[in-house]
Simulated assay, not measured.
Amino acid sequence: MLERGGAHVQLAGFARDDVLAPAVARRRPMLLGRSADAAMVNRALATLRQVLLPSDLKRWFADCDVIMARNLEQLAIARAMVGQRPLVYECLDIHRLLVGTGLAARAVQSVEGRLLPRADLLITSSPAFLSRHFDHRPLRAPSLLVENKLLVEEGKAPPRRPAVPAVPLTIGWFGMLRCRTTFAFLKQLAIEGEGRIQVLVSGKPSPAEFPDFEKSVGEVPNMRFTGPYTYADLPELYGQCHFAWTIDWFEEGLNSAMLLPNRLYEALAFGAIPIALADIEVGRWLTRHDAGFLVSQPEEARRELLAMTPERIASLQERALAVAPEDVLADDRDCRALVAAIGMAGGRA
């Protein structure tokens, strides 16, 4: 979005994989080290190293007008080298330690409390991150809500071609695959459905949560895993699905209750029906837009999906297709607005 909005972007950060994604690699980022899921101590030490020795980063970003940090660790690093330039903080997740009560949580919250007052602009993707967290923290900067909408070319909305209403029905679980409770639920659903329910899984499994995800999926009847995907694969993936699984019990009641994930907007952009819990932020978003398959608890989802008919699928699809494109899609106009807002950051008191 930044480049499409007219900004020149200089990248630096930690890498999770041995091979960078092509979109990142072609921008030739400065690599600060390796990161991994559930490796908090290693991440803290790597962050501290950059905070204490920021000279290389200062040279790397010497010609940049604005410094933007995409998580709390990066905010600490950015604070050490930003100087008098505007500092933008983008927060797309609230880690459990930021809302916990233990010693480690209080330590992380203390760090956040020291860093937030220096931010000139907060960018976040869900209003619940503001109401449930940042509104109660020492943040003086204005906030900008940038939802995780599907980014398309200006004036070129993707065709909505939902799967033909029928049984067996197909549920898609896409994205970052890190919720073991979701896997267990969908596994049991696929087994109990005895062919009435198919589960299509695609994305990047967390090695910390699923040491051998492909093998685990391969043992489940009526469930298949297609591996990682790209933006270009989305129409085909969602086009195979009647429903899209948006429930995430990872950090249940915390981050998962506050976020508005990419898969919500992607599903509706292609005419799939999001499955969501009614009493969390995703459910509230869908309620406002009169769309989605909302349930109060997993047992309700299991019971109703096993009894789903083509007629009800068609009715739910009709409501999904009625959601306005601008509510789920972003284009160059949104990109330019984002860059303009970042460019105006910096009026610190």
Rank of each mutant, 00 (worst) to 15 (best):
M1E: 10
G5V: 00
G5E: 07
A12P: 01
G13P: 05
F14L: 04
D18E: 04
V19S: 04
A21K: 11
A23P: 04
R26W: 13
R27M: 02
M30N: 09
A39H: 15
L45C: 09
L45N: 04
A46S: 11
L52D: 02
L57C: 06
K58L: 13
K58W: 13
R59E: 09
F61I: 08
A62D: 09
E73W: 05
E73R: 12
Q74P: 13
L75Y: 14
A80F: 01
G83M: 00
Q84M: 12
R85E: 02
E90P: 06
E90N: 13
E90K: 09
R96T: 15
L98A: 08
L103S: 02
A105F: 06
V111F: 08
E112F: 02
E112Q: 11
R114C: 10
L116W: 04
P117A: 01
R118T: 12
A119M: 10
A119V: 14
S126H: 08
F129N: 09
F129G: 04
L130H: 12
S131P: 03
H136W: 06
P138H: 00
L144G: 00
L144T: 05
K149C: 00
K149T: 04
K149D: 00
L150T: 00
L151F: 02
V152S: 00
G155N: 03
A157F: 00
P158M: 01
P158H: 03
P159G: 06
P162S: 07
P165Y: 01
V167H: 05
P168E: 15
P168Q: 14
P168L: 15
P168F: 09
P168K: 15
W173Q: 01
F174D: 02
T182K: 10
A184Y: 07
A190F: 00
R196A: 14
R196Q: 05
Q198V: 11
L200C: 10
K204C: 14
P207C: 06
A208E: 07
E209F: 05
E209A: 08
K215Y: 08
K215A: 11
G218N: 03
E219Q: 11
E219F: 04
V220G: 05
T226L: 03
T226V: 15
T226P: 01
Y231D: 14
D233R: 02
Y238P: 15
H242E: 03
W245N: 10
W245F: 08
I247D: 02
I247A: 05
N255L: 00
N255D: 15
A257C: 10
A257T: 14
M258H: 12
F270R: 04
F270M: 04
F270Q: 05
A272P: 14
A272D: 15
I273Y: 02
I275V: 11
L277Y: 11
A278L: 06
D279E: 13
V282P: 02
G283T: 14
W285A: 06
W285N: 02
T287R: 05
F293T: 08
V295H: 14
A301P: 10
E304W: 12
L305F: 09
L305C: 13
E311Y: 00
E311C: 05
A314R: 10
A314P: 03
Q317K: 03
A324R: 14
E326S: 07
D327T: 13
D327P: 13
D331E: 09
D332E: 11
I342R: 06
G343P: 13
A345T: 02
G346F: 12
G347F: 04
R348S: 05
A349V: 15
